[in-house]
């Protein structure tokens, strides 16, 4: 077994991110000194971050904890599908983005019966659009194709 466990890598990355952000706060031209400097408070916070993240890394190195293995493929598909959906939603409209997302996510999560999957992935977005855009006139993003969905 390698010494790189998922937990150790995450701890290390957190420490490095904190250090990178902290180094960002120095050497930039900002107006004001002390309480008037925009970096006054972030420097306190980030120094604290680096300190506790270092302690955390030490703790992780001293004890070896191996977590459960995730279903990598499944979680990656769901995460990517969610991101694409969230990105697409304001560009091609809620309905057109939600339908393929729902279908992909349901199938990935192990629901394979075609009728309920199709019904949910079409029906739920349609119901939400009908409710918000037309009943409440509180519009969700609409598609560039037509204003009513």
């Amino acid at each position: 077994m390698s010494i790189l466990t998922e937990r150790r890598v995450t701890s290390l990355v957190l420490l490095l991110v904190g250090m990178a952000l902290l180094s960002q706060t120095f050497g930039q031209a900002y107006s004001g000194l002390g309480a008037f400097s925009p970096m006054f408070f972030p420097q306190i916070v980030l120094s604290f971050w680096v300190a506790v993240a270092a302690l955390d890394l030490v703790a992780e190195l001293r004890q070896r904890v191996v977590g459960t293995r995730p279903q990598l493929l499944r979680v990656t598909v769901i995460a990517l599908a969610s991101l694409v959906f969230l990105l697409a939603m304001t560009r091609i409209g809620f309905f057109l983005a939600a339908v393929p997302f729902s279908a992909v996510a349901l199938v990935t999560l192990g629901l394979r019966r075609p009728v309920p999957v199709a019904a949910v992935s079409l029906g739920v977005p349609a119901a939400l659009v009908a409710l918000f855009n037309h009943l409440l006139t509180l519009p969700l993003p609409t598609s560039p194709v037509a204003w009513w969905f």
Binding site: S82, L86, A105, L106, L111, V120, P125
Partner: peptide
């Protein structure tokens, strides 16, 4: 079933966050 619930949660969260300030 859990799968339906999870998809429903993602859809509702997207709707809710969008309505907070309509900011993509």
């Amino acid at each position: 079933r859990e799968g339906y619930m999870l998809v429903l949660i993602v859809l509702l969260c997207a709707v809710g966050v969008y309505f907070v300030r309509g900011n993509p």
